[in-house]
Lab assay of single mutants.
Amino acid sequence: IQLFSRPDFLGDHFSFEDDQAALPASFRPQSCRVHGGSWILFDETNFEGDQHILSEGEFPTLTAMGCLASTVLGSLQK
């Protein structure tokens, strides 16, 4: 999965292949690309809070990911 700090796959980005119990504190994903398989994104660290399940594809905004525009993602799980 690739996470981007701005909508439309712009800004800083991080790529992950494994579960992340905590995303970098200063990084707030605003768009993402899922390459193969599914990922669960969580509103809180340690895989807690609301879950957003994404299958392979491109998600140019938080709302395209099924999140509110104000959502701050905290962790993710493959």
Rank of each mutant, 00 (worst) to 15 (best):
T45L: 11
A22V: 14
G49K: 02
I53W: 09
D8A: 08
R33M: 10
F4Y: 13
I1E: 02
S38W: 08
Q2H: 14
L73Q: 07
P24F: 02
T61S: 14
E58C: 08
I53C: 13
G11M: 00
C67T: 01
S38K: 11
Q30G: 04
R33P: 02
L41Y: 04
L68C: 15
W39D: 02
R33Y: 07
R28K: 14
P7M: 08
A21H: 12
T71V: 09
I1Q: 13
N46H: 10
F4W: 09
A21V: 12
S38G: 08
P60D: 04
L3R: 04
P29H: 06
D50R: 14
Q30L: 10
F16K: 00
A25Q: 11
F47A: 01
W39Q: 00
K78S: 06
L76G: 01
I40P: 02
Q51G: 13
E58L: 02
G74S: 12
F14E: 08
E56F: 07
K78A: 03
E17K: 09
S38H: 12
E56N: 07
R6K: 15
H35V: 15
F9P: 01
G66N: 07
G57P: 00
M65I: 09
T71Y: 08
A25Y: 10
L10I: 10
V34S: 02
F59T: 00
F27S: 03
F16E: 01
S26T: 12
F59E: 01
G66D: 06
L23A: 04
H35R: 13
V34G: 05
S31W: 09
P29L: 05
H52L: 08
S70W: 07
Q30P: 03
D43P: 08
L68I: 13
H35F: 11
A69E: 15
Q77K: 15
E58Q: 08
Q30N: 06
S31C: 07
T61N: 15
T61F: 03
L62P: 09
A21D: 09
E17Q: 12
V34D: 02
F16Y: 12
L54W: 03
T63M: 13
F42Y: 12
L76T: 08
E44H: 10
E17S: 14
T61G: 05
S75Y: 07
S70K: 10
L23E: 00
Q20E: 10
I1R: 01
S38I: 10
Q2N: 08
I53N: 10
S38P: 10
A64R: 08
E17F: 10
Q2I: 10
I53G: 06
H52R: 13
L23V: 03
G11Q: 00
T63G: 13
R33A: 03
Q51V: 08
D43Q: 10
F9C: 03
H13L: 08
L68P: 15
L10G: 12
E17N: 11
L62N: 05
C67W: 11
Q2V: 12
G74H: 12
R33V: 14
C67I: 08
E48P: 01
G74Q: 13
I53P: 12
D12M: 10
G11E: 00
S38A: 12
N46K: 08
S55V: 10
G66Y: 02
E44Q: 13
F14Y: 15
F4N: 02
D19T: 08
Q77D: 00
A69M: 11
H52N: 06
L76M: 08
E44M: 10
D8M: 10
Q20W: 03
F42V: 03
Q20K: 07
C67V: 10
D19C: 00
A69P: 14
L62K: 06
L76K: 04
L73D: 04
S15W: 12
L23P: 01
H13A: 12
Q51H: 12
A25H: 13
S38Q: 15
P24T: 01
G36P: 06
R33L: 10
S5L: 00
G37Y: 00
P7Q: 10
Q20T: 11
K78M: 09
T71P: 09
S5G: 09
G66P: 00
P7C: 07
H35N: 12
V34E: 01
R6E: 15
L41H: 01
F4H: 02
P60L: 06
E44D: 14
L10A: 13
L41T: 02
P7G: 04
P7L: 05
W39L: 02
D8L: 09
K78T: 07
N46Y: 08
H13M: 14
D50N: 15
S31F: 06
P60W: 00
P29C: 11
L3C: 00
L41A: 07
L10M: 15
W39V: 00
C67H: 02
L62M: 06
F27L: 07
G36H: 10
P7I: 05
R28F: 11
D18G: 11
G11T: 04
S70P: 10
D8I: 04
Q51S: 15
D18T: 13
M65L: 07
T45I: 14
Q77F: 02
T71F: 12
D8R: 09
A21C: 11
E58T: 07
L3W: 00
H35M: 13
D19M: 02
P29M: 06
F59G: 02
E48G: 14
T71E: 07
G36D: 06
V34R: 00
T71Q: 10
C32E: 03
E56A: 10
I40W: 02
R33H: 03
E48Y: 08
S26K: 13
M65S: 09
F47Q: 00
S55Q: 12
P29R: 02
F14P: 02
S26N: 15
Q2G: 00
C67K: 04
F42P: 00
D43V: 08
R33W: 06
L23T: 05
V34H: 05
R6V: 01
C67Y: 10
I40Y: 05
D8T: 03
A64C: 02
G74A: 11
F14A: 07
S5K: 01
V72M: 12
D43T: 15
E17D: 14
A69Y: 10
L73Y: 06
W39P: 02
S55D: 15
R28N: 09
I1Y: 01
F59S: 06
G49C: 05
P7Y: 04
R6A: 12
L62Q: 02
D18V: 10
Q20G: 03
S5E: 11
L10F: 09
H13E: 14
P24C: 02
E44F: 07
E44I: 02
V34A: 03
K78C: 09
H13N: 12
F42M: 04
S26D: 14
C32I: 10
C67G: 05
D50V: 12
T63R: 12
